[in-house]
């Protein structure tokens, strides 16, 4: 059986993306209103995807988007390293998701933070059920946005693995950027990504 490698968007596409973000940040910081608008829209897009796909809390998405909007606007005015913007943005969104969860009163015991996950018998994080309730209208939007099969499979992953998949495969961050956002080594990112891909594949076969 013949196999072909993926057309890999990394690292070249990742580098292009990072450079694109850096140009946009520099232009926005220099007073370009159109660049600022595009940057703020991107920040909110990142926040929306991260809220839904990593944290699995559709009801938090718009609050996290607002947080990303305001923080990005303030950050750009004092930017020193435009190249580091993307890492800063994903770290900020991740923190906003965590803070949002902590502020919830009466949070159900089964909810688990992104970095924790449940630990299985082999010391690896086990799957964690994520909360999935949202307003019916929002659920319709979400269903039409990303395939239900993929979202269900993502839910089956431990949160820390889910984040690696989303950042690397969906958001197109480089291994180094993912390592910076997740606070783990690049080698660990690669290991988790490999395991997550296999787990995701198995989960997709089951849904």
């Amino acid at each position: 059986m013949s196999v072909t490698k993926l057309e890999n968007p990394n690292p070249s596409a990742s580098e292009t993306d990072r450079a694109g973000y850096a140009r946009l940040v520099t232009a926005a910081a220099g007073g370009d209103r159109d660049a600022m608008e595009r940057l703020l829209m991107r920040a909110q897009e990142v926040a929306y995807r991260f809220s839904l796909l990593v944290c699995g809390h559709p009801q938090d998405a718009e609050d996290v988007m607002q947080d990303a909007l305001l923080k990005t606007y303030r950050y750009v005015s004092r930017i020193k390293e435009p190249e580091a913007f993307r890492t800063w943005l994903y770290t900020t969104v991740q923190n906003a998701c965590r803070m949002k969860r902590r502020r919830h009163v009466g949070e159900p015991a089964h909810l688990t933070s992104i970095e924790q996950g449940a630990t299985g018998g082999d010391g690896e994080p086990g799957p964690v059920e994520v909360e999935g309730h949202s307003r019916p209208a929002d659920q319709l939007l979400i269903d039409s946005w990303v395939s239900g099969r993929l979202r269900q499979a993502l839910k089956a992953l431990p949160p820390s693995y889910r984040m690696i998949v989303v950042l690397r495969e969906m958001e197109g961050l480089s291994t180094r950027e993912v390592a910076n956002v997740a606070g783990i080594s690049e080698a660990n990112v690669k290991t988790r990504l490999h395991r997550a891909r296999v787990m995701l594949r198995h989960a997709m076969e089951g849904v």
């Binding site: 993926l6 995807r49 395939s147 993929l150 499979a153 495969e169 969906m170 197109g172 995701l200 997709m204």
Partner: peptide, 11 residues
């Protein structure tokens, strides 16, 4: 490969 492709499409 299919799974990775679906993820990238969703992104």
């Amino acid at each position: 490969r299919e799974t990775i492709g679906l993820c990238r499409e969703a992104g």
